[in-house]
């Protein structure tokens, strides 16, 4: 008899525990599996601001389809030589981006000091170069322009059209000519030029 009562109790116990209506919380696998914390849109830490007036500045040149222009906070060798003005930007177009770096100095002595030091280390790893030497000094396509008091450096994944930029600098009254222009294409060696309003001349040793 007692055994029967115990079996009956056990049966009811099992029955009630199996039919419990308690809502169990279901775990979503997406919530518990590890995820990458990378956000594609915010991957850059050096771009600090957007300025629409800069877009119109660069868009003044017809053939350029500029999407946005961002300011860079990185430091470069020419920053050490007390420029009176500097502009460090990344210009984005639909298919490409160009790094635009420019420094203006109070006189030609500062500009020269800055330029020659820049030639010792245009980018890491430093690959110092002598005047008119032909060698690789940068990983990507790069052009350096130097006039009396201004130093400009452009870098891009695509080849930089130097003549287009000369027209741009002329139009924007940045400079009508440069005593030195260094062009290096990706996987190529440097070539040296000079320019005036009328002439674009290849320079050699």
């Amino acid at each position: 008899m007692i055994v029967n009562i115990l079996y009956t109790m056990l049966f009811f116990f099992l029955l009630t525990s199996c039919t419990s209506k308690k809502n169990k919380e279901l775990k979503n696998m997406d919530d518990i599996t590890p995820k990458a914390s990378y956000t594609k849109k915010n991957s850059s830490t050096i771009v600090i601001s957007k300025d629409s007036s800069l877009i119109s500045y660069f868009s003044s040149f017809n053939s350029w389809q500029i999407d946005s222009v961002n300011e860079l906070e990185s430091k470069f060798v020419p920053d050490r030589f007390s420029p009176i003005k500097s502009k460090k930007l990344i210009i984005y177009s639909s298919s490409d981006s160009t790094q635009f770096l420019s420094w203006k100095y109070k006189d030609s002595i500062d500009a020269k000091r800055s330029f020659y030091n820049f030639l010792d280390c245009v980018e890491k790893p430093c690959r110092p170069i002598q005047l008119f030497e032909e060698k690789k000094i940068a990983s990507s396509n790069m052009v350096i322009f130097k006039d009396e008091t201004t130093l400009i450096c452009l870098k891009s994944s695509k080849r930089i059209n130097v003549k287009d930029w000369l027209v741009f600098f002329n139009l924007n009254k940045t400079s009508t000519g440069f005593d030195i222009i260094i062009e290096q294409v990706k996987n190529g060696k440097t070539k040296w030029y000079s320019s005036t309003k009328e002439k674009y001349k290849h320079l050699t040793k």
């Binding site: 032909e134 690789k136 990983s139 062009e183 290096q184 294409v185 996987n187 190529g188 060696k189 070539k191």
Partner: peptide
């Protein structure tokens, strides 16, 4: 085809 001299293979990145 290039008008500028290319680097040597060991310099290519």
């Amino acid at each position: 085809h290039q008008d500028t001299e290319p680097v040597k293979l060991e310099e290519v990145e």
